[in-house]
């Protein structure tokens, strides 16, 4: 018997055990992710009539004609767009520095940029209120140097933006850094050699190579923002509110599970394309890792 055959026989004998071992987590995924989502999609698309279940778009018609829902959705889109732009604009220079500098500062900068990973977002919310809220640190410092108070971002759209940028910086940075890892130093040197300056390096050599990475980073951020709850709830305005707090209020306070599900499915749909890029890239890194 060849070795390959032997292993095959070996694994054949184990088949039921393998299935048995993965059964519970797979069952969890099916019953707590796939099933609820499928059920929500189904239920929001149908109504029960005496003659049976029929297709109906009423739930969505309500969502998209309700100005309150639309305002909340619009605010979420705005926050997502601003946060994504800010996060990419902040993490790209940091990542470039970390990747290509040999200075000793890189250690400090990396530690600092990854620090938010170690701060739970509920604590962050509290810290930001104390810093940016009324009579917070920023106000204190401004009045100490004799400047007038600024309008506090607390309870405006900028509150959640600041918090979400803070919270998402480490992982965005790590995604961009991983992408920059594929840009070799030699290809940068070669471009400088033929006369490219910093801006041209970025534009013609680096950005084209990390375009897909940036897309993945943006997808990650956008998915996170459509499901953000704690920070928008504690730092953001009450009206309009982001989809996270809005969905919670609809199901708990308004007690309208159907609309809450409709809202959830709408966020799924809006995020579908981003989810596709994001999941595809995760699947790819897992596959690379395991091979």
């Amino acid at each position: 018997m060849s070795r390959a055959e032997a292993t095959r026989q070996d694994t054949k004998g184990r088949r039921p055990i393998g299935l048995l071992l993965v059964a519970v987590p797979v069952f969890l995924v099916l019953s707590l992710i796939v099933w609820p989502v499928a059920l929500s999609v189904f239920d929001t698309l149908t109504v029960e009539t005496p003659s049976g279940v029929t297709l109906s778009l009423d739930a969505y018609r309500f969502f998209f004609s309700d100005s309150f829902s639309l305002r909340n959705l619009w605010m979420t889109v705005q926050v997502a767009a601003i946060c994504t732009a800010l996060l990419l604009a902040i993490s790209l220079p940091i990542a470039l520095y970390l990747r290509f500098s040999t200075s000793r500062l890189t250690g400090y900068i990396q530690a600092l940029a990854l620090f938010p990973l170690f701060v739970p977002s509920i604590l962050l919310a509290y810290a930001l209120i104390r810093t940016l809220g009324p009579n917070g640190t920023v106000d204190i410092l401004l009045s100490a140097v004799g400047l007038p108070k600024l309008a506090s971002p607390y309870l405006t759209i900028w509150g959640p933006i600041i918090g979400l940028v803070w919270d998402n910086l480490p992982l965005t940075l790590l995604i961009v850094l991983a992408g920059l890892g594929n840009v070799s130093r030699a290809s940068i040197d070669a471009a400088r050699d033929v006369g490219a300056n910093r801006v041209q390096l970025l534009r013609y050599i680096i950005l084209p190579r990390i375009r897909s990475t940036l897309l993945v980073a943006a997808s990650f951020v956008i998915l996170g923002l459509f499901s953000a709850f704690t920070l928008p709830y504690l730092l953001g305005p009450a009206v309009p509110e982001m989809m996270g707090p809005f969905m919670r209020r609809t199901i708990i306070d308004v007690d309208d599970p159907l609309q809450a599900r409709t809202q959830a499915v709408v966020t799924f749909l809006i995020c579908a394309a981003f989810a596709y890029f994001y999941v595809r890239s995760i699947a790819r890194t897992r596959r690379e890792q395991s091979s």
Binding site: P36, G244, P257, R261, A264, T267, I282
Partner: peptide, 15 residues
Amino acid sequence: YAFPKFGLYITIATI
């Protein structure tokens, strides 16, 4: 990873 988490929790919560 494929769904915004909070939306997912909402669909579970309704069940």
